[in-house]
Structure formats: C-alpha cells, structure tokens
Amino acid sequence: MWLGMGSNEMAVVYVLCILAALWCTAYGVFFWKSEGKPINTADAVDWDREERELDKGR
C-alpha cells in the first residue's frame, strides 16, 4: 500500500482530490482571458411584456 494507507482505494482518492484541485487551477490559468462567444445584445426582448401576452393567449 502507498501513502501509508490501508487500501489502494483510499490512496487513490487522496491523490484524486489533490489532482482535481490542480486540474481546476490549470483550467483557470489556461482560460484566464478566454471570453468565449461574444454576448449577443441585439434583438433584446421585453420579457415581462411577452409573459403578459402569453398569459392572455392561454
């Protein structure tokens, strides 16, 4: 057994937790400035008005 654990499963999960946090760190660093697809601000909808019209339709 490694890491002083009594089973391989416990050693694996201990390492997995640290790797998961490192994975999150690597992801954040790699995509530090990534903005993805630009937000489409055109065709804005008045959702409150639309909801009222939907209610009338029903």
Partner: peptide, 13 residues
C-alpha cells in the same frame, strides 16, 4: 466568461 474561468481556480482550491 474570463472571470468565471478564473473562479474555477479559487473554487477548486
């Protein structure tokens, strides 16, 4: 989106 990506670092740790 960039701020969300950075949040992954702080959240994981």
């Amino acid at each position: 989106e960039a701020q969300l990506n950075r949040g992954v670092i702080y959240g994981g740790i």
